[in-house]
């Protein structure tokens, strides 16, 4: 028997933080948090990808809009942010 929330998942060679974990504990993160305006957030959800200019290393990032932490996305060079939100979230909201 196990308590707790799944924290990370293996995706190929990497570990991806789970949506549920960052939604609950993401406010404790002090780096790799990307703030998006509501419009950017909506585009990321609907298009699955947006162009961004970030001064961080590529990899998984926490996505926040206003005071809400939405989940995880993948930041790739040069300047691409790829949605890694659950499918259900996109379907319900877009």
């Amino acid at each position: 028997m196990r308590c707790g929330l799944p924290f990370v998942r293996r995706t190929g060679l990497y570990l991806k933080p789970t949506t549920v974990m960052v939604q609950r504990f993401g406010d404790l993160a002090d780096k790799n948090v990307v703030d998006l305006e509501p419009l950017g957030m909506k585009r990321l959800l609907s298009d699955g990808e947006i162009d961004v200019d970030l001064d961080i290393d590529p990899g998984y990032v926490i996505v926040r809009s206003g005071k809400n932490i939405w989940g995880v996305s993948l930041y790739l060079l040069p300047g691409r942010l790829l949605s890694r939100f659950p499918k259900g979230m996109r379907q319900a909201i877009v």
């Binding site: 549920v20 939604q23 609950r24 809400n68 932490i69 939405w70 659950p86 979230m89 319900a92 909201i93």
Partner: peptide
Amino acid sequence: TKATIGYHLG
């Protein structure tokens, strides 16, 4: 309510 952001953010 299940189609709201609030629902998906838990």
